[in-house]
């Protein structure tokens, strides 16, 4: 699971109003796999991101921290772009647990695939 995907995921357990952002339990196993860099895509996807959730996800995986504030100057900063690309698209959570912030429901991530299936009584 990439952090881009994590940024979009929410818990939809019954009774939960937001279920976002999903916490990443400590001890998650990550792998890094290269992916083609495209500034265009980063610029396109940026307004879609919940930036603060991304920053805290990076923190919980002990990745190099992303700045809390993104300024227009950041877009000219090559190292910022590379770092964002790396954290967002190249880091894969292979094993771990996602935690719903409201209900505490845990969603396992196994072999890189998060399992968001709910039980019948949770729908």
């Amino acid at each position: 699971m990439k952090l881009l995907t994590h940024n979009m995921l929410a818990s939809t357990v019954r009774g939960v109003s937001q279920g976002y952002p999903l916490g990443i339990a400590p001890g998650a196993v990550t792998e890094v796999h290269a992916c083609d860099f495209s500034k265009e895509f980063l610029v396109h996807v940026f307004p879609k991101l919940e930036w603060s959730a991304f920053v805290s996800a990076c923190a919980s995986l002990s990745l190099p921290t992303m700045p809390a504030e993104v300024t227009p100057a950041s877009w000219e900063d090559e190292s910022f772009l590379r770092q964002m690309h790396h954290n967002l698209l190249e880091v894969h959570v292979q094993e771990g647990t996602l935690i719903c912030p409201e209900s505490g429901r845990q969603f396992p991530v196994s072999k890189g695939i998060p399992n968001m299936l709910l039980n019948e009584d949770e729908i």
């Binding site: 995907t5 995921l9 919940e50 993104v70």
Partner: peptide, 26 residues
């Protein structure tokens, strides 16, 4: 990801967080 379409998509709908510092600077 593993999910059942019939249970609804487990995705956030829009920008849900109430202005964190990140959102403000967005």
């Amino acid at each position: 990801m593993v999910g059942d379409l019939g249970q609804g998509l487990p995705l956030r709908t829009s920008l849900r967080l109430v202005h964190g510092s990140g959102s403000l600077s967005r």
